[in-house]
Simulated assay, not measured.
Amino acid sequence: MLRYYTYIKWHNDLPIYQVLMVLKKPENVRNIKGSFESTVQGLEVMKYNYKVIKAYEIDKNEILSQKNIVLYPLRVFMNHDGETEEEHILECLTAVEGLKDADYYFLLVECLKKLYQKSEYEKFVKEEIYMSSALYKEPYEKGKEEGLQEGLREGLREGELKGETKTLARTAVKLLIKKFGIIPDDLKQSMQKLDVPTLEIIIDNILEYENLEQVKKYIH
């Protein structure tokens, strides 16, 4: 932090005050200091201060009442007494899913990954919102076609191993979201009702579709 401060002060001369936010309660550290002092032979050389904020001690509902949107993704680390873990996860996701900027949803899901096992949060995540974030899309723009092909192969392998129509339907929906972004709920529901051969045709041709209308022709 001191090196970062020195660089900004030296090159840009910006007036900044640094903040250290501790997300999870440390197991082996009792006291986190907000200052650092340096002395040489009893002479004071420097005193460096910064603010320490412990996220796990903040009431997450205060962030909502203050409408401090920039902190919404970090609410998952905050105090949630009186709620089960599932209730807490669902509430945090609901708070950001209505925001215009899908990046907040993406960042919250990334924070959830740091706290919980995949099975505990993934059932609540709305993939169409998560995948519509610019933070999700940008790393995959390069080599997008290769990514779709790999997803196609993995989905088919998984479907063959499990032999389930639901597996192929979910794979097809994921690939369509990856290609077109948000897709209508009625289309996702219709995909669940298709048989295995039809789903395999849709997946095989995923790279050739230019719009969702070309997919809907397989739905009767």
Rank of each mutant, 00 (worst) to 15 (best):
Y5S: 09
T6E: 08
W10P: 00
W10C: 07
N12Y: 13
D13G: 03
D13I: 04
Q18W: 08
V19K: 05
M21E: 12
K24A: 10
R30I: 15
R30H: 09
F36M: 14
T39C: 10
Q41R: 10
L43F: 12
V45G: 13
M46P: 00
M46H: 15
K47N: 15
K47Q: 12
Y48G: 06
Y48I: 06
Y50C: 11
K51G: 07
V52N: 10
I53P: 00
K60T: 05
N61L: 14
L64A: 14
Q66E: 15
N68D: 11
I69S: 12
L74S: 05
R75W: 06
F77C: 00
N79I: 08
G82A: 13
E87C: 05
L90S: 08
E91A: 14
L93F: 07
T94M: 13
T94C: 08
V96W: 10
K100L: 15
K100M: 14
D101W: 13
D101M: 13
L107R: 15
K114Y: 06
Q117K: 11
S119K: 14
E120A: 06
E120H: 10
Y121F: 15
F124H: 10
F124L: 00
F124P: 00
F124Y: 15
E127K: 15
I129N: 03
M131D: 01
M131G: 02
M131P: 00
A134Y: 01
A134C: 08
Y136N: 02
K137T: 10
E138N: 07
E138V: 14
Y140Q: 04
K142I: 13
Q149W: 07
E150P: 01
E150N: 11
G151N: 09
L152N: 02
L152T: 05
R153Q: 10
R153L: 04
E160S: 05
K162A: 03
G163Q: 05
T165A: 15
K166V: 07
T171R: 00
T171G: 01
K174P: 00
K174T: 06
F180P: 06
P184D: 10
D185P: 04
D186E: 14
D186S: 13
L187R: 04
L187I: 12
M191W: 00
Q192S: 04
L194H: 09
P197K: 13
T198M: 09
L199A: 06
I201C: 01
I201W: 03
I203C: 00
I203N: 00
I206A: 03
I206H: 05
L207Q: 09
Y209K: 06
E213W: 07
K216M: 10
K217P: 03
K217Q: 10
Y218S: 02
H220G: 00
